[in-house]
Design a protein around this nucleic acid. Sequence first.
DNA 1: TGAAAGCATCAGTTTTACTGATAGTCACAG
DNA 2: CTGTGACTATCAGTAAAACTGATGCTTTCA
Lengths: 305, 305
Amino acid sequence: MVPPGWDTRQLVALLAVVDTGTFSAAALRLGYTQSAISQQVASLERSVGAPLLIRPGGPRRVRLTAVGEALVVHARAVVARLHAARADIAMLLAGERGTLHVATMQSIGTKVLPLLMRRFREEFPGVELAAEESESFAALTAGVEEGRFELSFVPLPVVEGPFAVRRVLEDPYVVIAPAEAPEAATGSISLRQAARLPLIGFSDPYEHEELLRRLRRTGYDPSFVFRSNDNPTVQGFVAAGLGYAVMPRLTVDEDDPQVAMLTLSSTVPARQLGILWHVDRQLPPTATRFVELAAEVCAAISARW
Amino acid sequence: MVPPGWDTRQLVALLAVVDTGTFSAAALRLGYTQSAISQQVASLERSVGAPLLIRPGGPRRVRLTAVGEALVVHARAVVARLHAARADIAMLLAGERGTLHVATMQSIGTKVLPLLMRRFREEFPGVELAAEESESFAALTAGVEEGRFELSFVPLPVVEGPFAVRRVLEDPYVVIAPAEAPEAATGSISLRQAARLPLIGFSDPYEHEELLRRLRRTGYDPSFVFRSNDNPTVQGFVAAGLGYAVMPRLTVDEDDPQVAMLTLSSTVPARQLGILWHVDRQLPPTATRFVELAAEVCAAISARW
DNA sequence: TGAAAGCATCAGTTTTACTGATAGTCACAG
DNA sequence: CTGTGACTATCAGTAAAACTGATGCTTTCA
């Protein structure tokens, strides 16, 4: 009937030890002394009835026992749940004037968000919408997991975690060329041809690895003359005539007269974009409505292409 | 980074108050004084920054505020998760010789389990299998939720909860008649006819309410001359010539010469049976294999019908 | 073989949690 | 409209726990 006497604090301590690899580092992170961590873990082990950690002694990192592994899985879930609770409550306390925190990526920020925010404002004039652009994709999911954002735009598929996701957009890859390039007039180009061009690429390969794999599979290892994660920068380099770029259409500034956009004649699977949220959270109606609106706006953009 | 300072004990106290309706009763249940509960809830409210409970004063039960509702949802999840953790660890500590606890219903116990257990034993001679029959269906799911069973046979659909389920058997309704009854020779009977017979029924209507609804929809309110939840008892009454019974085929003792089994010519949706487990648990390979074997055995039975 | 890095343990202190007593609130019966 | 019963808050005192700081033991690495 009554649950086991495991304390949140002890579970957090265990997680800190596992994540940092040493008791001392965990203590530092949590603002305790090493002695306190040692005692917390010992207390946990006593109530579990078995060792949770293997302490190799000396300066080697600790490792989990099988029992420890099992417990850590649950401990993480519990901590995540408490985070979700805190975030839910913060939202409730903010009430009607509550701010909806949405994390975005660069491309979404420029093409989707403006229209989306306008439509959202029409429906909920009282709700503030805080959109924050994030550089790394890991930061997007981490922010949602920790409750700093209610929603986040993310590329799919999404990492494992306590997430629910809704697909909103298929973002096909296109090639952009300098306006004066010979290919600019053709309007289309094959992947095989593209792989032979001097390319401007992305520094963070995570999102586009499938594309890279396909480029390589043409039999010609593509050469990247420059790399950046900033879409305008990439496009600027192309505009300057320094090379070509293969990028998701959403990231392209189509009004730029200095570059030409070419469709890819080879079929490359489009980048999938979705909206992500914490499964365990009880999001307000404004959030679910936001997701709906986002899907609509994205569908409209997709239809225009 | 560091999660909120909510303690498991406080969350449990809150849940006890919500479930019992008063601080005093919660204190009694948890073995504290009323004062302690009062302070625990107060501490929670302080750290949340808002009241969680509405205390109407006097002998009226407390109610949750909106914030309280939100927190309780998460608190229940956390407690359930801790239960799951404890159960997982108990299983791990038991090791290879670990017992697999399976809850069953009467009908499964007599027809499916014997064969199933034999096949399971062949594969895992070292693993003990503890099958426990339970009277009430609520006890089945509750047992799984609290970690007393790893697996449970249950009728579908299943109540809301932290459960995963696998369907294993379609169990069609049949009519059993006394061997000497005029209908015994026909081999089949319509629902309309059945509703006009003196029936032996089940006391617990939960599982069979769909059947009851269909019986009533024939326009004739069926009369039950006796009710019992014990399948052999029901069958015994039929054998004694006291009436007829509509029951899932799995619950029928088909070797009984004193009764005849008639199929229903009207289509009544069959009872669905499944195996249920706690989604959050990390069940050992023996458990997942047990589910597979159960599905196979049930399929074999189904094919024989 | 002697740092250096790491964990356990212990005694002492601070912090937290619980008890028991008391006062206050509300509903309901007389 | 007053008394009683069922309930919670609060307070002071105490019991329990959690944390610190010092110390000792173990292991790696130079």
